[in-house]
């Protein structure tokens, strides 16, 4: 019985470890994504506006 309990405890411990890695991975994604999106934001707005202008000017050829 003790052996079974030990096995179950080890499995529980492993699952807790996996969950803690999930939490760390999620926090890592949040931190990196925040930094990337803050940097990409201004460029994306400018490129987007330029693309809208290009599409509008291209439409003049129709």
């Amino acid at each position: 019985m003790d052996m079974m309990n030990n096995v179950l405890e080890k499995v529980d411990h492993f699952i807790d470890l996996v969950f803690s890695y999930m939490e760390k991975g999620s926090a890592f994604c949040y931190d990196k994504l925040s930094v990337f999106l803050k940097l990409a934001y201004a460029w994306s707005v400018v490129i987007g506006i330029v693309l809208i202008l290009v599409i509008g000017i291209y439409g003049l050829t129709f």
Binding site: I49, G56, Y58, G59, L60, F62
Partner: peptide
């Protein structure tokens, strides 16, 4: 945008103003 022409360009300029 599919209709193009001057109206399409005006639409794009209005869209830019809306986005800003």
């Amino acid at each position: 945008l599919n209709y193009g022409g001057f109206g399409g360009l005006i639409g794009c300029l209005v869209l830019i103003i809306i986005v800003l």
